[in-house]
Design a protein around this nucleic acid. Structure first.
Lengths: 256, 256
DNA sequence: TTCACCGTTTCGCATTGCCGAACGAAGAAT
DNA sequence: ATTCTTCGTTCGGCAATGCGAAACGGTGAA
């Protein structure tokens, strides 16, 4: 999330920064980009032209944008996730049955990445998008995942990224996280109110392999005023637990 | 599609080749990758470690894979396409109504890229995946697109990529392409049998803006034995034309 | 007409990323 | 048990590479 430069091949760092900035600016010209990245115009120009060759960026009227060339790699990475097709289907079912937004998140590099996202009939719009990286302690699915990860793995995640705050409700201390995770394990699902975003209510469950190791987490998010009573939350949790269980059983019996 | 190296920043070329190869091999170790790319082990190692920092690759037990870091950029590029959300919805509707596979394709760099793909109840499985780049003359949607592109644009595409063959039915000469495109314009949709893949029948229609310029094309594919009579093909074509028209009208009235 | 800013090109210099060699570890073959 | 191979990793020297600065033509605003 920050600017790293201590990697062996600095051109890759520059390129990654360039893509990130180009996406952030939602398109930019050579000069604007050079200014933003604090490099010379010719450098930015050369990079852009090289990236263009591979479809990583596209040029439209002197403005460059992130291109579709990366979509192929991204989709490949997504489909590589265990149980992807099945999970996609189940997330769709949850979205249909609850009418809310359902997402599936996996961990990579100690961060959460949403790889599936399906909207129900009256689903809320959130700022998250497929591929977005989030801190695991910021989202409900992330906590559902953490709750079932081995202790040392959780410690690794905290070492790498800490427990950054987001809203006043975000858990930022190790002790309260431990307590929260314990509560999730007891309840068998994670539940959040306002933690990720004000007025948003979310419920998350892990998806685990035979050996108990979680491979991801599925969550439903909706407006707090719609999921405001115990019973509705419990209903949704049951749907999630059921679908997660179906995924787990299918994964157990097929090697996919 | 081939190995280019005459770009200003060669590290980007190397990196792109690396990602492509890593994806092709479906994961590889340092040595294997170095051998494949014909570079030294240390070079491959340095690149992998740098790419790992940005989540572009991930390491699992001494094997590296393309990572989810690229998914974010890919999704961004996808959503940037005009009318994306609407098109996604309409493609879903076509898949539901026909029961077949429906896809949406856009052009980038003179190649086609499938950016939406939805399966109906009894849809065929094809080798294409979201993000895959295809030659426009290889797929039905590509020809539907070409048929409505300005002449000079079509000429550009042919200049860049030629008209590579794929099966014995693939159109590879400029004259027959011209005739085909003319036929598509008259018929108002493109239709293919066995051209992309044996036993596959496909129908494609363009999606055009006010000014007539196509922004993409939508296609339905199914087994030839199911779409074997005139009437069924015509039915599907009508669904496609209707949905495409709905997209066009909505795009006209909203600036999205 | 002037000025400012754009994308593009060229060029010389210092950085950078390359290769080859060597290391310890792990597994297979003997 | 031990040799041999192959793995990932580390290091250092050298040449290629990618960098910034400056200049060019074009375009639009002042």
């Amino acid at each position: 999330m920050s600017t790293h430069a201590d990697v062996p091949v600095k051109s890759i760092a520059r390129m990654a920064e360039l893509l990130r900035t180009l996406q952030l600016l939602d398109g930019a010209g050579v000069s604007e980009l050079a200014r933003e990245l604090d490099v010379s115009k010719s450098t930015a120009y050369n990079h852009l032209k090289s990236l263009e060759e591979y479809g990583y960026v596209v040029q439209e009227d002197d403005v460059y944008y992130v291109g579709l060339g990366l979509l192929d790699h991204g989709e490949y990475a997504r489909q590589r996730q265990p149980g992807y097709q099945l999970i996609r289907q189940k997330v769709r079912e949850v979205a249909d049955e609850t009418g809310e937004l359902c997402q599936y998140l996996v961990e990579e590099h100690g961060l959460g990445v949403f790889i599936v996202r399906e909207s129900g009939d009256h689903a809320v719009e959130t700022s998250t998008r497929i591929g977005n990286r989030v801190y695991l302690n910021h989202v409900t699915a992330g906590k559902a995942l953490l709750a079932y990860l081995p202790e040392d793995h959780v410690a690794d995640v905290i070492d790498q990224h800490g427990l950054p705050g987001k809203t006043e409700h975000t858990i930022t201390s190790v002790e309260s996280l431990q307590a929260e995770l314990e509560a999730i394990r007891e309840r068998r699902y994670a539940i959040d109110r306002d933690e990720h975003l004000r007025g948003l209510y979310a419920i998350g469950v892990p998806v685990r392999l035979d050996d108990g190791q979680p491979i991801g987490a599925m969550s439903v998010a909706g407006p707090a005023n719609r999921i405001n009573h115990e019973q509705r939350a419990e209903e949704i949790a049951q749907v999630l637990l059921e679908k997660a269980n179906e995924i787990e059983l299918t994964l157990k019996h097929s090697s996919v």
